[in-house]
């Protein structure tokens, strides 16, 4: 049933961070390998930065999935903005500290320094731009103990660049930038993503022209691409059920791509 193909294709592009959906692209794989190598080095902090939608969360998620089998790794997708809560969560996750009382920085430092272990736990902090400067400074001090290793992912904006350059300038030994996809990468990304979910017919519907248009609209941003394509297949699903004469089943129509872009706000119409 073609309709279910469109439904399946639509679901492929649901914007959710799932390491299973990770699509291997040459450049992305190289960066990912570089990140994995950096983690093995005796570094205190690794900075992962890039514009929103370039795959930072997916990287952390994938890293967590891949490394969790062999080493202690903790992934915090949502920032813990309260300082005491942050310490308490760390103490609980790293050292099994179960007390519900509040912890301050001195106390967490004591707990960490008491802990003797050959393996240094890896802490992945996503959306780190949301942490306060004070907490970030504490995180830096925690990393200085060399009892913890942090991978911090943050958005690349002018202000956040300042954080990266000034606040952590002396602590970050490795910084990795994630960028939007090129046209060729975007085509591979879309087709691999669809084929991974056995949506071969949908994958074959994308011509170079339609990929070019998607790239023009999304600038190669993975999140925007997912949003547009989810909407594209939603429109196809609608037309398929309501008025099949309006769609070409063999080729993705530019009109529908533009309609999807209007719907998702990428085109201001």
């Amino acid at each position: 049933m073609k309709s279910s193909i469109y439904t399946n294709s639509k679901n492929v592009f649901i914007d959710a961070v799932n390491p299973k959906d990770y699509v291997q692209l040459d450049r992305v794989s190289t960066i990912y390998q570089s990140l994995k190598n950096s983690v093995k080095k005796p570094l205190k902090m690794i900075l992962l930065y890039g514009k929103p939608g370039t795959g930072k969360s997916m990287f952390l998620s994938k890293l967590h999935q891949d490394l969790s089998k062999n080493q202690e790794i903790h992934y915090y997708m949502t920032p813990i903005l309260d300082e005491s809560e942050f310490y308490r969560v760390l103490a609980h996750d790293l050292y099994g500290f179960n007390e519900k009382k509040e912890l301050n920085f001195t106390q967490i430092m004591k707990i960490i320094q008491k802990k003797e272990s050959d393996e240094i736990p890896l802490i992945l902090l996503d959306e780190a731009q949301l942490y306060s400067d004070a907490l970030m400074e504490k995180i830096r001090l925690l990393s200085d103990t060399r009892k913890l290793k942090f991978v911090i992912a943050l958005h690349k904006t002018q202000t956040e660049d300042l954080i990266a350059k000034e606040h952590f300038q002396t602590r970050i030994w490795e910084s990795i930038e994630l960028k939007n996809a090129s046209i060729a990468e975007l085509k591979i990304y879309i087709q691999k993503k669809l084929m991974k979910s056995n949506c071969f017919d949908s994958a074959n519907m994308f011509s170079n022209k339609s990929i070019k248009l998607i790239y023009k609209l999304t600038n190669g941003n993975y999140r925007d691409t997912n949003k547009v394509l989810y909407s594209v297949f939603e429109i196809y699903e609608h037309y398929y059920n309501q008025d099949m004469s309006k769609i070409n089943l063999d080729k993705i129509s530019n009109k529908i791509i533009e309609m999807a872009a209007i719907h998702t706000g990428l085109i201001d119409a």
Binding site: S231, E234, H238, Q242, K255, M259, I262, H263, A269
Partner: peptide, 15 residues
């Protein structure tokens, strides 16, 4: 589900 008719109109205006 989209309001396809409205979306088509918006697309037409955009074009």
């Amino acid at each position: 589900m989209h309001n396809i008719h409205e979306l088509e109109q918006r697309w037409f205006k955009y074009k």
